[in-house]
């Protein structure tokens, strides 16, 4: 028992170190791209007409007059304390500026994931049980078409079909009223949610289908069937148990798609979230906001991957058996 607990603690410590390392790599590369490469950022931001005094003031404000390494560690230290910095464009703290947007997008991504993940598993498993059947073909075809399209094309097509030109059943924009809770404006967020689900669904469905199909044609499932175990039990107890661990990684990847997809989808619907906020920040060259949000998103995804690994471990008895024992 004690040995097993030690193993788990060791695994957690190792995983935590890897997470921190990954986040450091991302933060460093993002910092290097935004701070170190361009020669004259303040002049680019203020324009050619700016006076030298204005340039010097902005440089000082951005801390660009100090050595790069000092800037890097101050920024990193701030991020570790949860301080996202001050927006270059507006002078307000990034947390104040982006906080409501982060909450709105987190809500949307959670709801979209809550629809996408079960739907993808249901569709993928159903298609895998009858290879070459109508559902299998329909899914492969749809997946192929949707995977070729950028998110905004699907979002605009939805607006044209459901909100303007063909039918007019839903509002074309999702400009939320910040004074009312988001769930009380449900009619506004239906179309963006549909767009998010449609764009994120194909990849996961396809990979669930492939994994389940492989599992159903494996030796141990064949033996379970030959032993007279009912098909339903074979599917749930024998096949799906092995599908969960590899699929968890792709579930997190799907959440990554959902987050990346919000940038274009929120812009199409004028939804006040982190995606459209990022697009605006790039327009105004608000470097601090972009750095902080990029690292924040990376941190969330890295944490989710770690959770997926841990849950996958619980589902894989072989992997958590102490090394060398039970031979």
């Amino acid at each position: 028992m004690g040995a097993r607990f030690g193993q788990a603690a060791l695994w957690c410590a190792r995983r935590l170190a890897i997470m921190v390392g990954m986040l450091l790599v991302v933060a460093t590369i993002v910092f290097l791209i935004t701070q170190a490469l361009p020669g004259d950022l303040p002049r680019q931001i203020l324009g050619q007409a700016a006076t030298d005094a204005q340039i010097a003031r902005l440089s000082e404000q951005m801390g660009l007059d100090r050595p790069l390494i000092v800037q890097y560690f101050e920024w990193l230290g701030g991020m570790l304390r949860g301080d996202l910095g001050v927006s270059l464009a507006s002078g307000t703290p990034v947390a104040t500026l982006m906080g409501p947007r982060i909450a709105a997008t987190a809500f949307m991504v959670t709801v979209a994931a809550a629809i996408t993940l079960p739907a993808a598993f249901a569709l993928g498993i159903a298609a895998a049980r009858r290879p070459g059947g109508a559902l299998d073909h329909a899914i492969s075809g749809t997946v192929f078409v949707i995977m070729s399209m950028p998110e905004f094309v699907i979002a605009i097509a939805l607006v044209a079909i459901l909100a303007t030109n063909v039918f007019h059943v839903l509002p074309a924009t999702a400009a939320l009223d910040p004074r009312i809770p988001i769930w009380d404006q449900a009619n506004l967020i239906v179309l963006p949610l549909i767009a998010m689900v449609i764009t994120a669904l194909p990849h996961l469905t396809e990979s669930v289908k492939a994994t389940v199909r492989e599992e159903l044609s494996s030796e141990h499932v064949r033996w379970a069937r030959l032993s007279g175990i009912p098909e339903r039990t074979v599917l749930t107890r024998y096949a799906l148990a092995n599908v969960v661990p590899p699929s968890l990684q792709i579930c997190v990847q799907t959440v990554g798609y959902l987050i990346g997809g919000t940038i274009a989808i929120e812009t199409v619907f004028s939804f006040p979230g982190i995606g459209s906020g990022l697009a605006n920040s790039v327009m105004t060259r608000d470097i601090t906001s972009i750095q902080s949000i990029a690292v924040l998103i990376a941190a969330v995804l890295i944490a989710l991957y770690a959770v997926a690994d841990a849950v996958g471990l619980v589902f894989t008895p072989r992997a958590r058996r102490p090394v060398g024992g039970n031979r």
Binding site: M22, L23, V26, G256, Y257, G260, L278, A294, I297, L301
Partner: peptide, 9 residues
């Protein structure tokens, strides 16, 4: 580490 960050970001 870097492939975790969405490409568009």
């Amino acid at each position: 580490s870097m492939v975790i960050v969405p490409q568009i970001l």
